[in-house]
Nucleic acid binder design. Sequence first.
DNA 1: GTCGAGATTATCT
DNA 2: GATAATCTCGACC
Length: 204
Amino acid sequence: MNSREHQALLNILTRPSTEVAPLLLGAVLHGRGVSVRLTEVEAYLGELDPGSHAFRGPTKRTAVMYGPAGHLYVYFTYGMHVCANIVCGATGEATAVLVRAGEVVTGLDVARSRRVTSKMDADLARGPARLCVALGITLGDDGVALGGEFRLDLPQHPAAVFDTGPRTGVSGDGGSDAFPWRFWIPGDPTVSPYKKSVPKKRIS
DNA sequence: GTCGAGATTATCT
DNA sequence: GATAATCTCGACC
């Protein structure tokens, strides 16, 4: 990507993450021989957001989120998985967009070899940790800037239609209906199917 | 197809 | 010592 495009990208990313998130739907993230078209993302609003890692103030782990937009924030979770965010907003705001799911568009063979447990191609990057594995993202990539080994191509036109809802997997109040900051492309087979578990329906 | 439970470890209190 | 922005597998419909 040339510098003008990169500047245009940063222009977008420095907006509030709730505005940035829907604009990333349909964008293509490239890295390590695999490219993924994003179909599902979540916005996190730093210290104002009870679901964000930054809610309790800066820590060593969240330092990257407090930095400038256009960098990758990668973290370890549940002992065995990594998830990737794209840092948004102004420096010091600690806002970011979590990349939740996508469709592998190039490097299918590489992605398949990294995710041997996936039976279908639609599963290769369906879920934040899976997507990181497919792209070859590791903890060591925390803090890298887009435009180098990893690149992000915004869609020619913003997604015409998208849907929103409560975030999933977030503890505390962060997953409540008060924060409907999950965005996805309706009907796309690569959107994660995980739903909040509901009490067994009683049909009489 | 859906539901429930267990795995496993960096990071924080 | 407790927690976690998840995944996988087994049981069941």
